[in-house]
Write a protein that binds this DNA or RNA. Structure first.
Lengths: 113, 113
DNA sequence: GTCGCATGTCAGAAAATTCTGACACATGTC
DNA sequence: GACATGTGTCAGAATTTTCTGACATGCGAC
């Protein structure tokens, strides 16, 4: 796996995911190996709700993957790990992804005013 | 050229640049060849100030390049073209770019309260 | 001069994103 | 029971990004 045909939506999701310093740090931290949320929050010095949101976005983009597990002592622990993706982006690739971009949705009123 | 060592700032800039549908469309349109601003604005159906802003962001990220030229009949025309980049992003690359990420800038007050 | 078409920039509105501080739950230990 | 640990979620504030509608410039043609 690695070089799949990126859809417009996927390209947009990936771009958005990489558009924030915290998310880059999270991704970098997970490149070393899986970690559970609370631990990661402490390591990166950010609040859990915030980290949760960022992880959500990274997961939506398909860059990380979470799995809820049961630790030895019965506690529920959610581990996250980086998906071993390999993005490859060029102007041509962007161009060919355009047709699968969600329509602009004119935001001004629906179809029957 | 192509696979250069991405700095954290550059990675962030590129991600941000790709995080907007309009900018993807702009990039796609320029993949075919250079165009001047007003023409591009008509083609994409967006206002010139808006297009100007997006082009600025794309240029800051190093994905497009603009050059002000003088047309035959003496008019000043600004052409933009896509830079033939080839991004390659993996978790490891993100990780190695982290050290060159701009510091978090705690936003709370400066250095002498 | 006035029109057309190119350029750029500004202030402020509008919308989306980011972040915090509660709250909820479950489980094992003291 | 009260703690300490883990999980998730919510409403609202704070910030950033996006977008519009002016305005200003320059040059050629009429």
């Amino acid at each position: 796996m690695g070089t799949e045909e990126l859809t417009g939506a996927a390209l947009l999701a990936v771009g958005s995911a990489l558009a924030n310093p915290h998310r880059l740090r999270i991704l970098g931290a997970l490149a070393d190996g899986r970690q559970y949320v609370s631990h990661l929050a402490r390591e990166l010095g950010m609040s859990r709700p915030l980290l949760h949101m960022h992880l959500q976005k990274l997961q939506s983009a398909g860059l990380v993957k979470g799995s809820l597990e049961l630790s030895e002592d019965g506690k529920a622990v959610k581990y996250f790990e980086a998906v071993p993706f390999k993005l490859e982006i060029t102007p041509q690739i962007v161009k060919s992804a355009l047709p699968t971009l969600p329509p602009s949705t004119d935001k001004r009123e629906g179809t029957s005013p």
